[in-house]
Design a protein around this nucleic acid. Structure first.
Length: 267
DNA sequence: ATGGTTGCTTAGCAA
């Protein structure tokens, strides 16, 4: 009987484009729970059999062409919900973009999120990103308590601290490292989260994303924007956490690497 | 260096 389980978040940048990579990685690493972002596939085309063949249950909330999230688990998924704007402000456009889902598995609540990129600080998409983050905080407050074992996993599209970017000088005020993003993210963190990679790895230079363009990987121009954040009851069970950069260095990679956390198993 | 690369919606977005 295993005494621990692993929880992963990975922006695969296209489930179909990443099919071989993902299935090979699942076979080799055998993670217990995986949150996927940017699946870019409608629900009726989601390759359920690929995952059931490897022993996973799966749930998904996707759409054609972009966005899309999914969670796979070696144990059944319960209380599956999708969408952020279940009680939208009057002005909200609803969940046209498939960016959030939540499941219960392994005795914990797992929230899988793909935060909007934001494009640039002067774009209308930037204010939409801030609104999404405020909505995410509100969603957490309405649905959960920090005393529950819960993991917020996903591409948050924000590097929280100076040690999470390849260059503070280059990134200051830019998308992914902007004071308004930091304020919105901090409001979520202070609700009751521990950053799992940071809990085990204080050093800088740990990144989860490198741009395809301009030799971003070769020049190590990375950002740590993919995160596993655990509430205190879950974080207390944390055993280790790391970023699997080898997947970013592989053939035909996603531009994001998997982020992994390992936790003690209670039952 | 306002380019560069990749994926999906095969043309042009989005990232």
């Amino acid at each position: 009987m295993a005494s621990s389980f692993t929880l992963v978040t990975w922006n695969v940048n296209g489930l179909r484009a990443r099919r071989e990579r993902l299935l090979g990685w699942l076979t080799a690493r055998r993670p217990d729970i995986v949150c996927l972002q940017e699946t870019k596939i409608p629900d009726d085309l989601f390759p359920v059999e690929d995952f059931t063949a490897l022993g996973y249950h799966c749930a998904f909330s996707g759409q054609k062409g972009f966005n899309g999230v999914a969670v796979i688990s070696r144990r059944p998924l319960e209380n599956v919900s999708a969408g952020l704007w279940d009680a939208p402000p009057v002005s909200a456009a609803g969940d046209a973009e498939k960016r959030l889902m939540a499941v219960t598995t392994f005795g914990i609540r797992v929230v899988c999120v793909y935060v909007p990129n934001g494009e640039s600080p002067d774009s209308p998409k930037f204010s939409a990103k801030l609104a999404f983050l405020a909505g995410l905080k509100d969603w957490l407050v309405r649905h959960h308590r920090p005393g529950e074992p819960l993991a917020l996993c996903g591409d948050l599209n924000i590097a929280p601290q100076p040690r999470d970017v390849y260059s503070v000088e280059a990134m200051e005020g830019q998308i992914g490292f902007h004071p308004q993003e930091h304020a919105a993210l901090e409001a979520i963190r202070t609700w009751g989260f521990v950053d799992m990679v940071r809990a085990f790895n204080p050093q800088g230079g740990l990144y989860s994303w490198w741009d395809y363009r301009g030799g971003g990987l070769a020049r190590n121009l990375g950002l740590r924007i993919d995160h596993i954040w655990a509430t205190m009851p879950l974080a207390a069970r944390g055993m280790e956490s790391w970023i699997d950069k080898t997947e970013r260095e592989a053939e035909k990679p996603s531009d994001h690497a998997p982020v992994v956390g390992r936790f003690s198993l209670l039952d």
